[in-house]
Design a binder for these strands. Sequence first.
DNA 1: GGGCGTTTTTAAAGCGCTTTGAATTTTAGC
DNA 2: GCTAAAATTCAAAGCGCTTTAAAAACGCCC
Lengths: 342, 342
Amino acid sequence: MSLKALSQRLGLSQTTISRALNGYPEVSEKTRLRVQEAARELNYRPNPHAKSLATGRTGHVGLILPMEQNLLAEPAFSEFLAGIAQYLHQAHMDLTILPVDYDAELAAYEHLAHSGRVDGIIISSPLLKDERVARLAQSDFPCVVHGRTLCDYPYNFYDIDNKSAFFKATHLLLDLGHERIGLVNGDERLTFALDRHAGYEEALKARHIPYDPLLVHAQSGMREESGFIAVSQMLMQRPRPTAFVVTSIIHALGALRAIRQHGLEPGRDVSLIAHDDGLPYLAADKFDPPLTTTHSPIRTAGYDIAQILHHEIEQKSKAKTLTQRVLEVDLVIRGSTRPRRQ
Amino acid sequence: MSLKALSQRLGLSQTTISRALNGYPEVSEKTRLRVQEAARELNYRPNPHAKSLATGRTGHVGLILPMEQNLLAEPAFSEFLAGIAQYLHQAHMDLTILPVDYDAELAAYEHLAHSGRVDGIIISSPLLKDERVARLAQSDFPCVVHGRTLCDYPYNFYDIDNKSAFFKATHLLLDLGHERIGLVNGDERLTFALDRHAGYEEALKARHIPYDPLLVHAQSGMREESGFIAVSQMLMQRPRPTAFVVTSIIHALGALRAIRQHGLEPGRDVSLIAHDDGLPYLAADKFDPPLTTTHSPIRTAGYDIAQILHHEIEQKSKAKTLTQRVLEVDLVIRGSTRPRRQ
DNA sequence: GGGCGTTTTTAAAGCGCTTTGAATTTTAGC
DNA sequence: GCTAAAATTCAAAGCGCTTTAAAAACGCCC
């Protein structure tokens, strides 16, 4: 059932049908109803390619997936995806995953934008100085970055305040009397990890506690085992660290395992704070002991970013807006943090 | 840079350019080279919508994502996705996530297929009697199901032998002398869970061990806490179960926590087998104790399914093939299973 | 060098929609 | 009842590609 067929059946021009269905005002209400009725009846669905060809719009949002990074293996990433999907669903759009080679020539990224496969792009996990982001974000193609880069040109981003989060976490531990505090961080080529590191370091500095590089492990890959190894190693030091800040709930699992394996009791002997992205299958409050966390549901981030991008797309032709949002992160205090035992 | 522009610049017809670029034989090698050269030079990229409109093909594969099911929150699902993306990447195709309402009218599903947004569809986590699958799979639209349904029409599917896997697991525990074996299963409205249940039950039957419904918990949602609760409850029974088979590595986390909280030592006092989808961030062999598992990397499933679908798409016009594959699952024996203590 | 079969190239007709600019009908004003 | 303005409707062009059917160029032979 094509427009043409429908128009013939109704004895109207294609123009009128098209307008009636797309809500243009220059169609009488009577005709519009008649057309809508018939369209439903005959199960007419406009061909999306024809539509795209004519309008240049696709109704698809693209998410760049650098294959080498294996982002989909990051548990938090699919929560992020879920948030995006959730928004797009209600906006009647689709999500297109664009697997690319991380170091494909820059032209490939630019082409991605202007190929018309998608109306807008979400960039996730940018590197510190991400030339790809630079190019894409500077072009006038709708584009939102999850996280930030170290670049100074204006671009749309959405990030949580990682620095402040880890500052707060470290600060809490210091308040509880801990002085040797281990940091189990993520891949420090990524901005979020650097920010967390900075927050940690700044909190120490504020209390004039010397920064000890031996107390910092930066792992790439969010694995239980990474947490286990990092914490195990640090627990072998003397004086022993009495508290840890770890970068994910998955790391926290490993951390707990390490702590127990050392014959220590988490909470009582060793305090622990984890960043919690809100993974539904690993609830921090259900841990034993319940975990103190810096908490920021990454699903919400996905949802919000999709929304921002959607607006950006709608605005495309109009005045260029700039959306830069940094979310404050909650510190949720539970049983895994206690005063240092003397 | 459009075909037209390119053709004018080269003094050739659009037809020739198109053919040269798409590898048709009716173009002299000399011309082809000249055209390819120019195309590269001028950075010509065919407009995908125009192409789709003309050919009816998109180079996109669709993955139906029933929103209510919240599949993306399942840790194994994103591994599955990763496998799909991996294959599609090297086949130069894109993955389009199609968020739908689970109980959208059937027409919506059919439309999805014939709308032309995608060349083929992957259906994941089908229900037992999934009318959607029935319709989609019966139509001649390229389509592969991950898992099976209880329907008797022919359709393409790819599944692991869940029944045999859980049969083996249970069998091993029986061999080790365990008789009261708990089963922590997934959502039994889904086929994979039913199959696992059947395997468990059959193994018991083969040994004439009576089936006790109190030893079976079927949870929807793959959560650490589900595993914890199920195992905790069962451990309160007397006589106490001495072994568990659980449906995921996430459940295993909860199971371990429950076992320890009961003052028991996993492996020594209580044996445990988990199904392992191969989540990279939770490696079964790194558990304490290392977990005995039924192991089948779900990423591979995604990869294979994408490949099957790809072939299906290529074959579309030709003879209809039917691909039905059921993968055998390995039983990997590690430290969490030991002979029952008297 | 004309004729014939190949090889190579081309013009033009779609694919199914949107949108411009013109034509038609309706309404309102006097 | 007539006219100008407003409200509707329409025909046709265009989006950028593929593909069919026809034309042109080429190579070979006698």
